[in-house]
Nucleic acid binder design. Structure first.
Lengths: 220, 220
DNA sequence: CTTGACGGCTAATTCAAATTAGCCTATAAT
DNA sequence: ATTATAGGCTAATTTGAATTAGCCGTCAAG
């Protein structure tokens, strides 16, 4: 009965159709937008016919909603996943006295590449971009995940580096903006034109070196 | 006959329905996206019934296409409209030796406020954001208007200022990125949450002052 | 003063896409 | 073995929005 659902994982030989629907739907929504995706498209990708979808979800909107829910779950998990070379942010602030330019570059590249390449994140960001109007909550989610949270998180890191004397500024907020805004902008470029990724990475590196020169200790 | 169309402008007492359709359609498309706007919605705003729209445009897509065409026309015109306090960019480079921090702030604010408030530009930018997938040309148009062109134009100005010794850098491209990326990011914030405009303007000013401190002559 | 095209309206019509009905098979618990 | 359920399919059905048909008043040109 109910056990069957939970019990599936003990085999795992046939990945949950219900989950595959979400996955394929997200891909399509992120490419064409909700209104331009037909339930038949989703079904086809999953390898079933449209009416069969309704065995898993009440209707098209329910698929969309399930994606949003899943997002919220993942966001919570991954909140702390952006680190400096594997070093967790919660670690003692002493570590920030050691950070070199190369590590700063790593930080920026990691952030950029994670956002750009993580499959779920990428599709989700595109969907949020396209579907902002569909639900004000989506615009909020976008803003939080790609503006406010990064600024706050990066601000914390850079603030510590400033406190440690590695960076010099009397306005951490603006310094953080200077660090992150170019990353953000390059991200929106690559989302639209993946071909420009290589160029963007070079620009990113040059940006961070210059950032370090501008804000770094004068002897750096 | 054909004269009637051209002759209308001599009166002008009744703004062209054909034009009003484009205007209202752009507003709606920018808020909800093409697929979520019904021709009946557009008609209602214009003050007519849906079938009457077809006296002016072949179909819904033709309305969309006409908007794009109109955009292209305007883009060409307005290409040079971003100036430093009314000073045209084509003017002798000597002028750039005079530019002060306040004028730099003006430049940034003008750019920002023009993009943010110009009615047509604003609606169009939102539509491009939402409808990127509808037509690859739209993604390209967005990229050109909000990334490449500003970087190129601002880069020219800042490059001259650098040549004039007002700014110091060995990489104008990155300096331009540092100048513009925060403006771009603040713009995407305000598009989604107009309430944050005031905060954004303060941030913008702080950004440019810091920019000037970082790149300006040391005696500045 | 009459004609034709411009632009509006109401009432169909079309059409595509979502959803439902109803059937069928395999599997898994009893 | 029996049977209930999960999950798939085909063939309707519904729905709703775009578009077309066809009518009408106005106004400007002849």
């Amino acid at each position: 009965m109910k056990l069957a659902k939970a019990g599936l994982s003990e085999r795992g030989y046939k990945m949950d159709t219900k989950q595959r629907i979400l996955d394929e739907a997200l891909t399509l929504f992120s490419e064409k937008g909700y209104a331009n995706v037909f339930v038949a498209d989703i079904a086809a990708r999953v390898g079933i016919k449209a009416p069969s979808l309704y065995k898993h979800y009440k209707n098209k909107q329910a698929i969309f909603d399930a994606i949003i829910e899943e997002m919220n779950r993942r966001f919570v998990q991954e909140a702390g996943s952006l680190q400096i070379s594997g070093t967790d942010a919660s670690v003692d602030a002493e570590i920030y006295k050691q950070i070199s330019e190369e590590q700063l570059i790593d930080l920026g590249k990691n952030l950029f590449l994670y956002f750009l390449h993580d499959d779920y994140t990428r599709r989700f960001r595109k969907m949020l971009t396209i579907e902002q109007f569909h639900d004000k909550k989506l615009a909020d989610a976008y803003m939080k995940q790609y503006v406010d949270d990064p600024l706050s998180y990066q601000g914390m890191l850079l603030g510590m580096m400033s406190a440690a004397g590695i960076l010099q500024t009397d306005n951490v907020e603006i310094m953080t903006l200077h660090f992150y805004a170019p990353i953000y902008m390059l991200l929106t470029v690559c989302d639209r034109e993946p071909k420009r990724e290589k160029e963007a990475l070079k620009t990113l590196e040059a940006h961070i070196r210059e950032f370090n020169r501008l804000y770094g200790r004068k002897s750096g």
